[in-house]
Design a protein around this nucleic acid. Structure first.
Lengths: 265, 265
DNA sequence: GTCAGGTCTCCCGCAGGGGGAGGGTCAACT
DNA sequence: AGTTGACCCTCCCCCTGCGGGAGACCTGAC
């Protein structure tokens, strides 16, 4: 079969077939050494269709290649993994829809902002340098480790986190989650850390974190209107979180942004 | 606010803000005429967040721009339209998953292929030149028009369609859907057309059309093994379709591919 | 005045494709 | 045995939305 006939039979475009050849996904059965013409055979139709389906699922070409090269069991695993990623994307899309709706109706109530000086304190913390996509998974794992190491009786306050601004503006940055506990000690990834003191502008975000950036924005607007500059990593304190309630609409997250030169205002 | 501060507050990257400015999505409140420095104000935070959400929903920048420019009612309509498209994508993704599973388990039964000479016949048809994404919507509308013009008593056989191969290989092509009826006559988009005679290789696809290309492929493989060349637009005949049953798994679609020079074999 | 960190513009990269140029090949006609 | 039109080849540029990095300029705190 010539490439055109093969394209007709598989419902792929000629260009796409050439690209798949170049990428090593689908080697033509025969290539004329003199003319460069690609010739395909009927038994290449099923692999072409598998590639087509995987591409419909937005599997990157490189991953398609390794899926095709893997044995059936490993292949099933890779496909399942990818479907899991699609699930995650779907959840994020749903959250964006909900948040967009909220965003488009005008604000009903004003944001309560409080200035607060936080002293230094010793906590059990897990640090990491991570990317924005992985922040949820990383957070869950780190917090689970802290919870396991320090049972409720030893805890002296709600857990918190510090997030470098580059995490949001560049997609990657330093993150730290911590728990204040009676007797902090290192174990596994957990370290004993002294949190630096800070002057914070503090507001509370109600509900799930899908649109927490709205509260960030309002807090930033407040700072701008008061001629203050936000600076340094943001502080989050999980007053009410997934470990405390089943309903994410009841979550309460305190957001604290270090305010530059607050003491000298 | 400088662009960096604004980026921190909105959780957008500096580069992205510059791009949004260039694209005319978000004009900085002030631009220094001498240095080119962009300066933003607090009331630009909400629009920036709306843009952020729309981009999370994969709305193209151009469309974001027109959404922002539209009045609230029209805006809501455009967003609803986009969510409809996302729904469609989701459905297609689900179909691809199901079809991929089918594809990865080996074929259970052979395909029955029949050779058939179809004589010319006069039908009521709707023609169009369409893109692959719009084929379902176009088909539904055209078939509804045919159904309305010719009530069951006047119909003399199942409806059908002809699809140019370029539709699949280049994403756009000529399509025609038709119904054989007792007394074809033109009205609206409906024309009276004489279908050209053809020599077809015919197979029946069972089930929904999500993986109809698998049957196409098997039919193509059959043709290749019999040293025949598929040529010309494919014929589909909807023996059992959505108008005949509630369960898409009971659909039966006859696929006929014109075989080149069959008569001289 | 110095100097680090911000900011500017401009160019290149990525994915996975499409459009088109310019030239060689195939196969069905006369 | 040509001719001719459809096919195929490679190569380059463009699209989207973003990131990386270079080189130059600006800002503001010491």
């Amino acid at each position: 079969m010539t490439i055109g006939e093969f394209a007709t039979v598989t419902h792929l475009s000629v260009r796409t077939l050439r690209r798949y050849h170049e990428a090593g996904l689908l080697q033509p059965a025969e290539i004329d050494r003199f003319t460069g013409y690609r010739y395909y055979t009927a038994d290449q139709i099923p692999p072409a269709q598998v590639i087509h389906r995987l591409r419909e699922l937005d599997v990157p070409l490189a991953e398609v290649k390794s899926i095709l090269a893997a044995d059936p069991q490993r292949r099933a695993q890779m496909i399942t993994d990818h479907l899991g990623r699609l699930e995650g994307e779907l959840a994020r899309t749903r959250a964006a829809v909900v948040s967009l709706e909220r965003l488009l109706r005008p604000d009903t109530q004003d944001l309560q902002v409080e200035m607060r000086s936080v002293p230094a304190r010793l906590v059990a913390a897990v640090d990491g340098h991570i990317t924005l996509d992985g922040v949820i998974a990383w957070y869950d794992a780190a917090m689970a480790e802290l919870d396991a190491a320090f049972p409720p009786a030893q805890r002296t306050g709600p857990p918190g986190g510090r997030y470098a601004n580059e995490l949001f503006t560049h997609g990657t940055g330093d993150v730290s989650v911590f728990r204040p506990v009676r007797d902090p000690r290192a174990s596994g990834r957990i370290e004993v850390v002294e949190l630096a003191p800070a002057d914070l502008a503090v507001a509370v975000h109600h509900g799930p974190h899908d649109d927490i950036d709205v509260t960030y924005g309002r807090l930033g607007a407040w700072a701008a209107e008061h001629a203050l500059t936000v600076d340094g990593p943001v502080h989050e304190t999980y007053l009410v979180g997934p470990r405390d309630t089943d309903s994410s609409s009841r979550w309460r997250t305190e957001i604290g942004w270090p305010i530059f030169r607050l003491a000298q205002q």
